[in-house]
Nucleic acid binder design. Structure first.
Length: 344
DNA sequence: CCCGGATGGCAAC
DNA sequence: TTGCCCTCCGGGC
């Protein structure tokens, strides 16, 4: 269910509440018992999102051993550059219904910078108003992974992927991913731990990957190797805002259109991270889109849910730009929404 | 109280 | 293209 913005929020949350701490890792459900044993008792050094992939980094802190070098502070390549085998990475993909829940004492909850968790992909519990934090509750349901620190806990259920990666795996994962709008540029302290300072030319990279393919651009936006983190809602809304027909082949999207799509994705998804929900009807004062005169010139936080999208799940309702009923069809196994009247 | 859909992705036909 | 994964929750009975 979550698109890239949710994964970036989770990476930030996990870093906020666990980074630098030794954690107990278990699999109450049992399905991840072997993997949990590889991580149990290690120090969680940070979490990062690459598109919809969530990577949680651990280092083995048993180290009575003479000071092994710290991770290079200046090394922005990310900690997986470490070759000594003590660094381990947990890869999680939430798929359609994976979700984290968190709970802990006041310091644990206070460490979170994402504000109140949202229902999609993140929930909060164990916030006993007047009570004292007495440790994690008995696991309810199928908890694939449980992380427990001194101050709180996190439970993961229903992920489509959950595995411990080798350094080679991590390198391959990074190489396969397209540019991620939420790792691009400098979101002023808004980026997660391993966030590399993205090349200024992410827009160009996206444009190249989009425009060299003959496949429908509505399908390419969902291709994580073309652009990482876009899901079904952002795909439909980005193309509507740009006035682009989802069936137009990637190679027939102009360079300017591609660059504008990228800029709009960066804008919308940063709001998604900030708010914990997808809003796409707000105006970007710094960037003109085809739908500019229909956008709301207010903070996206103030836009109610029912006014938060232009076409997604609005089949049959009149297009806000031209009045044509919004159409829907299945494209590559997913429901696509668009206006056949004004998207060309 | 059951059914089915959901902001994914994959392997197998 | 289809089925499957395997979880939650809302809508319709």
């Amino acid at each position: 269910m979550p698109e890239g913005h949710s994964i970036h929020r989770l990476a930030r949350q996990l870093t906020d509440v666990f980074a630098g701490q030794r954690v107990r890792v278990s699999s109450p459900q049992g399905r991840f018992a072997a993997g949990a044993a590889l991580l149990d008792g290690h120090v969680l050094t940070g979490a990062e999102a690459i598109g919809k992939q969530l990577l949680i980094h651990f280092k083995n802190h048993d180290g009575e051993g003479p000071g092994r070098g710290e991770y290079g502070d200046g090394d922005r390549q990310g900690p997986d550059g470490d070759e000594n085998g003590e660094h381990r990475v947990l890869r999680i993909h939430l798929g359609l219904y994976g979700a984290f829940s968190f709970g802990g004492d006041a310091s644990f909850r206070g460490a979170s910078s994402i504000g109140a968790p949202r229902r999609i992909g993140e929930t909060e519990s164990g916030a006993q108003p007047g009570g004292e934090y007495l440790g994690p509750p008995a696991p309810v349901g199928a908890v694939r992974v449980r992380l427990v620190s001194e101050h709180g806990w996190a439970d993961l259920r229903g992920p489509s992927a959950c595995e411990v990666l080798t350094s080679d795996d991590v390198r391959a994962l990074r190489a396969a991913a397209g540019p991620d709008p939420l790792r691009s540029g400098a979101p002023a302290a808004a980026d997660d731990a391993g966030g590399a300072p993205a090349a200024a030319d992410d827009a160009g990279e996206f444009s190249g990957r989009l425009r060299r393919r003959h496949v429908a651009c509505g399908q390419l936006l969902m291709d994580q190797g073309v652009i990482a983190g876009i899901g079904n809602v952002y795909r439909a809304e980005l193309l509507f805002r740009a006035g682009i027909d989802p069936y137009r082949p990637g190679k027939r999207v102009t360079e300017q259109e591609a660059v504008d799509l990228w800029a709009d994705a960066v804008f919308l998804m940063r709001d998604g991270v900030r708010l914990g929900r997808i809003v796409t009807t707000q105006r970007d004062p710094a960037h003109a889109v085809a739908v500019q005169d229909l956008t709301l010139d207010v903070d996206a936080a103030d836009i109610p849910e029912e006014h938060g999208r232009f076409v997604y799940k609005r089949t049959g309702q009149p297009c806000p730009r031209c009045g044509t009923p919004v159409a829907s069809a299945v494209m590559a196994g997913r429901n696509l929404y668009w206006c056949p009247g004004c998207q060309h």
